[in-house]
Design a protein around this nucleic acid. Structure first.
Length: 220
DNA sequence: ACCCAGGGTCATA
DNA sequence: TATGACCATGGG
C-alpha cells in the first residue's frame, strides 16, 4: 500500500469529512488549542460556553479574568492551563495583525512564529496552518502514527518533523494538495474513532490491517 | 473503577 | 536526546 492508496481507500469508505467544524478561522485556532489531549465533544461544550457569553474573540479572551475564562473552559479539561494558553495565543494573534496580516506570511515563517507561542506545539501549529490558514501541511498525530505503524509504512519511532516531511514529500505529486491534506488527516481520525475501535476484529475495516488494535504505540 | 481523548511544558539525567 | 510528572473533564 502506498500513502495515496491508503487515502483513496479511506475516502471511498468514509467520504469527505468537511473539517474543521467551526464558523471562522479564529474558532478553528481556539479549537485546536482546546482539543489538546481532549475529546472533541468536551471541546464543543467549552466553545459553546465562550459563544454563549459572547467571548469567542481575541479581545474578549484577553479581557476576561482568568478565573472566569477557566470556568467557561471547565468541560474541556486542563482549564487552568488552557485559559493561559488561549490568552497567550490571542496576544500573539493581535500583535501580529490577526488573520489578514498573518495570511501574508509564507508557511514556514508562519509555522516558526506559531511555535514560539507557549502552549502551541508541532501538532497544534499544523492543525492551525492546515485548517485555519489552509496551508498544505500534513498533521501528524497519535492516530497517524498508530495507523501507519500497523500498515508497516513507518517504524513509529520517527520524530514528528521526520514523519511530516515523509508524508508531505510522498504526496507532493498529487493534484489539489490542500484538499488532499485536509481530508487525509480528518479521515485518519474518523477511521480510528468510528470504526476500528468498535470492531477489534476489523471485520469491515477498509484497510484490513488491525490498525487500531491495542491502544499504545509500544504494544505493536 | 479504569482507560483515554483531535498535546505540550517543564524538570531531570 | 529522552524519559517522567503534571495538567483535568467526561464518555465508554
Amino acid at each position: 500500500m502506498t500513502l495515496i492508496q491508503v487515502y483513496r481507500t479511506l475516502y471511498d469508505s468514509y467520504g469527505p469529512q468537511g473539517w474543521w467544524p467551526a464558523d471562522s478561522p479564529f474558532e478553528i485556532m481556539i479549537g485546536a488549542i482546546l482539543t489538546q489531549n481532549t475529546a472533541w465533544s468536551n471541546v464543543e461544550k467549552a466553545i459553546n460556553n465562550l459563544k454563549g457569553n459572547n467571548a469567542l474573540s481575541p479581545d474578549s479572551i484577553i479581557n476576561t479574568p482568568h478565573q472566569q475564562l477557566a470556568e467557561w473552559l471547565l468541560p474541556s479539561g486542563y482549564y487552568n492551563i488552557k485559559s493561559e494558553r488561549l490568552k497567550q495565543f490571542c496576544h500573539w494573534y493581535i500583535k501580529n495583525g490577526e488573520l489578514e496580516a498573518l495570511n501574508k506570511l509564507a508557511t514556514k515563517p508562519l509555522r516558526e512564529s506559531l511555535l514560539q507561542v507557549k502552549g502551541i506545539g508541532p501538532e497544534t501549529a499544523d492543525d492551525i496552518l492546515l485548517y485555519a490558514f489552509r496551508r498544505p501541511v500534513f498533521v501528524i498525530d497519535a492516530y497517524t502514527r498508530r495507523l501507519f505503524l500497523r500498515l508497516q509504512l513507518i517504524t513509529g519511532e520517527e520524530p514528528y518533523e521526520k514523519l511530516r516531511q515523509y508524508f508531505e514529500s510522498e504526496l507532493s505529486d498529487n493534484d489539489n494538495i490542500d484538499k488532499l491534506f485536509n481530508e487525509y488527516h480528518a479521515l485518519i481520525v474518523m477511521h480510528a474513532k468510528q470504526h476500528c475501535k468498535k470492531q477489534p476484529d476489523c471485520a469491515d475495516c477498509p484497510l484490513r490491517s488491525n490498525c487500531e488494535v491495542g491502544s499504545r504505540l509500544s504494544d505493536a
